[in-house]
Design a protein around this nucleic acid. Structure first.
Lengths: 185, 185
DNA sequence: ACCTGAACACCGTTCAAGT
DNA sequence: ACCTGAACACCGTTCAAGT
């Protein structure tokens, strides 16, 4: 049932995601889903939770391909954007309001980010301060890139071009947009 | 008709946005909207276009309250986030895939951002390089913050707290996350 | 030209029966 | 316990009539 739901969301997106169609694919009556989930929202939440797991694994795998702390953080960020490009409908469902559930799989993915930030701080490549706050900044940046790309706001861009831009943006946030010559300190 | 649609989206969101309900509010038959718009998507596009106009005006007004180029850019960024918090459903509709229309009001809002970046470059508070690329970075950051906030990913945060975080994130992108001591150059 | 009501093929959700 | 078919109140969209 959950498997059928995951396949459907990949094809139809959250908009075309329909309880009756899920049931049809699972080969059961239009009504059977209610045995496993309370309503449409709960099934979508289960799909989203599975998506967060996959996102988290992708980020960890990408980070593990790098050696230095900063490279690991950048790798995870790129994996975040790449996930959104690979599974745009899934990604959309994961952040479709309504499911601000706290104890979810999304929090785990965020913790991965926090851990990567802390490693940078330990290595001295990121300043002291609340790692959670820094993680939110990093999250916001890659989330914005991912959302804009999925929404078609980078018209005509290939996957490679979006990822190239993401790398540029991440590095810009590392080094700052203001040039040295114009800094007060 | 468009007015009724704008009011409805504010109450129901893109999800609950219904052609029949719009018609009901406008006091016409469920079918009348088809006289003015080809289908549901076209009416939503009109709502989105109006939203981009308002967003653009808010950004310009916020920038004009500041004197220095960097402050103007930051002001516009904060206005972007604030708009999303004030009109979350409207904001969602504006970026609900499908409408990647090129010649739209959204491009104008983006041009406002590009202009603010160019002013920073002229003042020497931002390095030379394609201003469009820098504008995309700035856009991605505030868009990510706005989307995460609207999706309920900052649970329990007040409007003021989100804006405070947005200011922190914008300034971090100005100065860079990597501390001076760890820079190679 | 514009609006109307009926109709069609869909939804999510509920519920009384069936095994 | 689980599944089924019928039913209800909604959709978006189309279309033949009405003024």
């Amino acid at each position: 049932m959950l498997q059928a739901a995951i396949e459907l969301i990949a094809e139809a997106g959250p908009e075309g995601f329909t309880l009756r169609e899920v049931a049809r694919r699972a080969g059961v009556s239009h009504n059977a889903p209610y045995r496993h989930f309370q309503d449409r929202a709960e099934l979508l939440a289960a799909v989203a939770s599975q998506g967060f797991q996959e996102l988290n694994q992708s980020m960890i795998a990408a980070a593990d391909k790098q050696t230095d702390a900063l490279g690991r953080l950048r790798g995870a960020g790129l994996a975040y954007v790449d996930f959104a490009l690979r599974r745009p409908e899934h990604f959309t469902a994961m952040f479709d309001a309504a499911m601000s559930g706290t104890s979810d799989e999304g929090a785990r993915a965020f913790q991965t980010l926090v851990g990567l930030i802390e490693a940078c701080q330990k290595g001295g490549t990121m300043p002291a301060g609340d790692p959670v706050q820094f993680a939110r900044v990093a999250w916001s940046l890659v989330h914005g890139i991912a959302k804009l790309a999925v929404a078609g706001r980078f018209p005509g861009w290939t996957r490679a071009k979006v990822l190239e831009f993401a790398r540029f943006a991440i590095d810009a946030s590392f080094h700052g947009l203001i040039p040295q010559s114009a800094r007060r300190t």
